[in-house]
Design a protein around this nucleic acid. Structure first.
Lengths: 202, 202
DNA sequence: TTTTATTTTAACCAAATGGTTAAAAAATGA
DNA sequence: TCATTTTTTAACCATTTGGTTAAAATAAAA
């Protein structure tokens, strides 16, 4: 007997992701997570010693999911325009599936800034960043794109990719009321990269 | 004796803004708000009946501050490019002063979506939106800007203006470590509008 | 069938927290 | 000085919540 156990633990994780993403660490209730997983509180504590441990696991997953597209972008060996198309698609793919991610991660870092230290773990990040900054500067020098600070370009790419998901409830209300915002956001990936490329290309 | 009373109530509001913005409704503690305001819990409850009332007041203020630049943009009678410059400056002004605002508003709407109903209150919004959508469509027709869905343009403007503040702790860590990110963001307003205008102008 | 692992039940505990109360103290204005 | 308002003190209450425990029940593996 081991199958049932694994399944239960997976149900707990799924429930924890849902509740923590919606209510945050402080707002989430262990009872609610147990209910959502279809088990009782005793069993929940049997598998995950306490709320913090459970949260940490969920948060780490989420942080990784949020950083992966950036890290992949920085490491990507394609030419600049293709790299931009790739990261936009990558982010839209992840965020259509997990739209709560940006809010969740940003918010928990906000309420406990020491959690930001986990950003250091990502390997290949610093080299990738240097490589990409050089690539952008050279694209400027060789007249492929207009002058722009590389970090600002990266910031713009990230902003355009992530914010519509983070601000989704408000965005839907003021711009896309009565429409399926996920469909709209899903189709947006390539238009976002076009918007960016249009802005920088000469 | 009335001056002291008013001052105390203002101190409470300032404290409540700080604590609620950092920890949210669920994470904030009345004791912490009292400490931050330099008073005791009894006095806090003397002026604000309960946590929810206090929160509501703080949240409504915050929501208004977040929506004002959009509403002003939609009502602005300038030409399109100038309107874009205006909203970017407007947002950067507000958010340099209150960087916690976007997260706070988005997050509390997230954890209680019924709060979104307060968006309806804003007057002149629907007319302004129609007017601006027509303005953008006509700029496309008359060949001033490339073809773009008006709502998508608005979404891009908002994303580029707000996200860097919302994601500030992470952005600082991965792009602007050891630098003063507020200085960087403050100066960004005009570069953001240039980035947008560059992308759409023919 | 026996053994082992999983799950439930249900009662329980300690700490944190929102909120109250009443009386004393301090500050203020007239 | 006197009356009024503001503030503190400090004890207290009810509820929520994270977490525990031990025994019974259920399910699976051997």
């Amino acid at each position: 007997m081991e199958k049932k156990s694994v399944e239960t633990q997976e149900n707990i994780l799924i429930a924890a992701r849902t509740i923590f993403a919606q209510k945050g660490l402080a707002g989430a209730r262990m009872q609610e997570i147990a209910d959502c997983a279809g088990i009782n509180k005793a069993l929940l504590h049997y598998y995950y010693r306490n709320k913090e441990k459970l949260f940490e696991q969920v948060f780490d997953e989420a942080l990784k999911k949020m950083l992966r597209p950036i890290v992949a972008f920085l490491a990507d060996n394609s030419d600049l325009f293709q790299k931009i198309r790739n990261i936009c698609r990558h982010y839209h793919e992840v965020l259509v599936e997990y739209p709560f991610l940006p809010n969740f991660v940003i918010n928990e870092i906000n309420s406990d800034p020491t959690r930001i230290l986990k950003l250091f773990d990502v390997e290949g990040f610093l080299e990738g960043r240097e490589k990409t900054i050089i690539q952008i500067n050279e694209a400027v020098k060789s007249g492929i794109i207009r002058p722009i600070d590389p970090r600002e370009l990266i910031l713009n790419i990230i902003s355009l990719s992530i914010f519509p998901f983070a601000g989704r409830p408000v965005i839907k209300e003021i711009l896309y009321k009565n429409e399926n915002i996920y469909e709209i956001l899903k189709e947006r990936a390539d238009r976002v990269s076009d918007f960016i490329i249009q802005s920088i290309k000469i």
